[in-house]
Amino acid sequence: MNLYHYASPSTFYPLAGKLIPWFAALAFILTVVGLYIGFFVAPTDFQQGEGYRIIFIHVPAAWMSMFIYVVMAFWSAIGLAWNTRLSFVMARALAPTGAMFTFVALWTGALWGKPMWGAWWVWDARLTSELILLFLYVGVMALQAAIDDPRRADRAGALLNLVGVINVPIIYFSVTWWNTLHQGSSVSLTRAPSMAQTMLWGMLIMALAAWMYTIAVALSRARTLVLERERQTEWVRAQLEGQP
């Protein structure tokens, strides 16, 4: 198998086009199943009542928010090392989805925090780290938006991603440390009740759905980016004439 073959934009474009509907369909089905389990099958929690059900969205979103950042850094590193344009495109296509999941995680966290802690926001270590992660996403997107030359935007964004990914563990550690020193009214998230089997299933399925969604959205965004950047080339012209 020749990886370079798939890394060429003219192969990637139609291939991604074929794959997107499948991932989108999977994302949809898994979301429906996951939500069904989450809202109708999973038992009511005896401590937190019905409100806990938001974790079926919150936890997968939080996982994805961190995971996508690492994947972005991975593509950035590949792009910088081997100068493959498609890697930069992938890194760039992932950023908005990552930021979206981070925002969703924060928002659902706040919704969950209200009944649990009696406050929309507490400076819990995880919430705080998540907030800083959102800042990192915003930084990368702002930098790339500010640079007109796509080549420079790719590279600058990639460097920032790498610096960010080295810093994320340090930031997380420092925030946890800071939080333990300032233990005030904090209710620890880790004291989550032992989870019923069905709850776990619901969460895993939702996480898988988030995966599929991310792949579908990132691929379609990458497709647009590829088309825009390669608009001078023959295959794009042929492509555009083929589908008027």
Binding site: R151, R229, Q232
Partner: peptide, 8 residues
């Protein structure tokens, strides 16, 4: 040499 998308 390319500048933006233009081949110079």
């Amino acid at each position: 040499c390319e500048r933006g998308e233009r081949l110079l």
